[in-house]
């Protein structure tokens, strides 16, 4: 294992936890990314084809989008092939760079050996005691996404202080806070301080909503 991402080779694709019986979908959830890439590429293709071009400059406004489309189709297709050939088993190593940097390159540059990899591995144990069905905790992510969507819907009707406090409280609750009543106070304090500091002092416009209507 290395300091950043380590893809497991196709030959060694044994799930680290859970059932050893691997279905086709196992380790291939990255197809979501392929779908997003294709969706963006198709959107750009339709937009380029139906573009209402103004003026007559030589390489026109459609020129560069065509290049970007080619890049996107190419990347999406290659990624799909890559996932088919080497499914990515969820790994539990820490990725500080989120794949930003090639571990191979950093190993060469830093003359890294087993000591460094081991030092990185032994501190927070990378193998959790419990196992789950999915790598990501979709319940928590879902709560958060629901929270921000609700915030955007409620911001103008309810005003900043109430909606921001509600968002703060929800995120804190979803991420594991065990003092819900105390958190209401923290959340209201936080959103009010922001309203005062940025709304009153720096002059940013924040919707006052219900509270503003009453005052």
């Amino acid at each position: 294992m290395s300091i950043t991402q380590q893809e497991s080779g196709a030959g060694s694709s044994v799930e680290p936890h859970g059932k050893p019986r691997a279905r086709f979908g196992t380790g291939r959830s990255e197809f979501v990314v392929v779908a997003v890439l294709y969706a963006v590429a198709i959107f750009l293709t339709i937009g380029t084809a139906t573009m209402n071009v103004q003026g007559k400059s030589a390489p026109g406004p459609q020129f560069f989008p065509i290049l970007v489309c080619i890049v996107l189709y190419l990347a999406a297709t290659l990624l799909a092939i890559h996932i088919l050939r080497t499914p990515n088993v969820p790994d539990n190593t820490i990725h500080p760079g989120h794949g930003q940097f090639s571990a191979d390159m950093l190993h060469d540059l830093g003359h890294l050996g087993k000591e460094e990899d081991a030092a990185y591995e032994d501190a927070p144990s990378p193998t959790p005691g419990k196992t789950w069905k999915t790598y990501s905790d979709w319940r928590t992510v879902g709560l958060l996404v629901g929270g921000v969507v609700a915030f955007v819907l409620l911001l103008e009707p309810l005003g900043w202080i109430i909606s921001a406090a509600a968002l703060f409280w929800l995120v804190a609750y979803a991420l594991g806070s065990r003092r819900p009543v105390f958190d209401i106070g923290v959340a209201l304090l936080f959103s009010s301080i922001i309203q005062l500091a940025f709304g009153a002092a720096l002059g940013l416009s924040l919707p006052s909503g219900l509270v503003g209507g009453i005052l």
Binding site: P124, S125, P128, K130, Y135, S136, D137, T140, L143, L175
Partner: peptide, 9 residues
Amino acid sequence: IASRIHRDP
């Protein structure tokens, strides 16, 4: 963070 906070040590 939300996707991992209850799982990572």
